[in-house]
Design a protein around this nucleic acid. Structure first.
Lengths: 208, 208
DNA sequence: ACTGTTCTAGAATACTTATTCTATTTTGAG
DNA sequence: CTCAAAATAGAATAAGTATTCTAGAACAGT
C-alpha cells in the first residue's frame, strides 16, 4: 500500500554523520541535513521525532560501534597484553574510521544534545555507559586484583585517556596519526600500568 | 565630561567568563551576559564591537595567562626537570584556577568563535601560537639536541597532551583532580621523555 | 479504476539569536 | 546654568533555528 521511501532513515543518519564529523555537531542543522539530501525539512521529521533523537542516534551509533570493538580487545587475555592492545586499538581505529573517531572523540554528548537523552535513547545510553564501566572494572580486577577508584583511574588513563590525548592533535588537524603516536601510546600505557602491577607484583613475588 | 561607566569592559568580560566556564561558550549569549549584569544588551555593544570580539577576548585572556606561566616553567633549567615541572604544572594550575582551566582546556577556539579571529585579536592570537611553538621548539632543542617534527610531537605529548588527558575527566566532572593524577602525569611524561633522551643519551655516553 | 496508507513537499509558525537604532540620562568643564 | 560628550536603556530588526501543518503524490491490493 505505502508509497516508496525516497529518504531512508539510514540516508538521513549518514548525511547527519558526515556533517557532524566534518564541521561539528552544531553545524548539523535540520536545514543543512535536508539540503545535503535534496530533501525538504519536513521529511526529516517524518523519520525522526526531533533533532535530538536524530543527533543522539548518530552519536550513540558511533559510540556503540567503537566501544563494542574496544571492549572486545580489552577483555582479551592475558590482561596486561589486553590492556596494551586496547590502548593501541585507539590510534588504529582512528586511522581506519576517521569519521567515527571524529564524532566520538572530538565531541561530547553535550555538544550533540544540549539537554538529556530523549526517551527512546536513554536506555541505550545507560547500557553503553554501564558496559564501559563494567569492562574497565573487570579488566582492572583481572590485572591487579583490585578495582578501587584509584586503580580504575590509572587503568582508564592507560587505555583511554592517554591514547586519546596522543591522537587528538591529529584529529584536530584532520590528518592520520603518524607512527610515533603508537610509540607514545605504548610507552604511556606501560608507564601507567607499571603503577598498578609493577612495584606490587615485584614485592609480592619477593615475599613468596 | 563623560558620564560615569556602570558596566566596565572588565565586568562584562568577567560575566562572560563565568558563563562560558560554567555552561560552555555557547551558553554565553549576549542576552545572558547582559542579564548576569543587570544591563541592557545595547550596553554590551557599547564596549565590544561584536560577540566574537568579546568571547575571543575571554578565550585569549585565559590562554595567554595559562601559557605565560606554563612557558616560564618550561623554559627553566635543567631542561629535563623543566619539562617534568611543566607537565606537573598542568594539574596544579587546574586546581588553583578551575575557571580558567575549563575555558582553556575544555573548549577550543572554534567553540568560542565559529569563524576566524576578528581583526584586532588576530595578531595577539598569532603571537600566542608562535610563542607556544617557539617555547616547545627551544625546550626540545635543549633537551635532546634536535627539534624535528617527531621529537616535537613526543615532547608535546609529554608536557601538554598527556597532562591534559589526565586532568580532563575531572574537569568534566567539575571536581579537583585527585593526587593520583599527578603520579600519572609524572609517569607518562617520564616515559615519553625517555623516548627522546633515554636510549640515545645512553648510547652517546657509551661511545665516548 | 478505486482507495486508503505512507510518503514527499514546502509553506507557515514560534522562538532565539546577534545586532542596530533611537531616545534618555549622567557628568564635569566652561 | 548650559552644553556636549559618553554613557545607559530598551525597543526594533534581521537572520537563523527547530518544529508543525496542510496539501498533494505514489503505490499495492482490491
Amino acid at each position: 500500500m505505502p508509497r516508496q521511501a525516497a529518504f531512508h532513515p539510514h540516508l538521513i543518519l549518514d548525511a547527519a554523520s558526515r556533517l557532524a564529523a566534518r564541521d561539528g555537531p552544531a553545524a548539523a542543522t535540520i536545514a543543512r541535513i535536508a539540503g545535503e539530501l535534496g530533501a525538504p525539512t519536513g521529511s526529516i521529521y517524518h523519520r525522526f521525532a526531533s533533532r535530538d533523537v536524530l543527533l543522539g542516534e548518530v552519536w550513540l551509533g558511533a559510540a556503540e560501534a567503537f566501544q563494542r570493538d574496544f571492549g572486545a580487545v580489552l577483555a582479551g587475555d592475558p590482561p596486561r597484553e589486553a590492556a596494551l592492545a586496547a590502548a593501541a586499538f585507539v590510534p588504529a581505529r582512528v586511522r581506519r574510521r576517521a569519521d567515527e573517531a571524529r564524532l566520538r572523540l572530538l565531541h561530547r554528548r553535550e555538544d550533540f544534545l544540549g539537554g538529556a537523552w530523549p526517551g527512546e535513547l536513554a536506555a541505550r545510553a545507560r547500557a553503553l555507559q554501564r558496559a564501559a564501566v563494567a569492562g574497565l572494572h573487570e579488566a582492572c580486577q583481572r590485572l591487579c586484583g583490585r578495582a578501587d577508584a584509584e586503580a580504575l583511574r590509572v587503568l582508564r588513563f592507560a587505555v583511554v585517556d592517554a591514547p586519546l590525548a596522543a591522537v587528538l592533535p591529529h584529529l584536530h588537524a584532520r590528518e592520520a596519526p603518524p607512527p610515533v603516536v603508537d610509540a607514545l601510546v605504548r610507552a604511556s600505557a606501560e608507564a601507567a600500568l607499571a603503577m598498578l602491577t609493577g612495584p606490587q607484583s615485584r614485592r609480592r613475588a619477593q615475599r613468596r
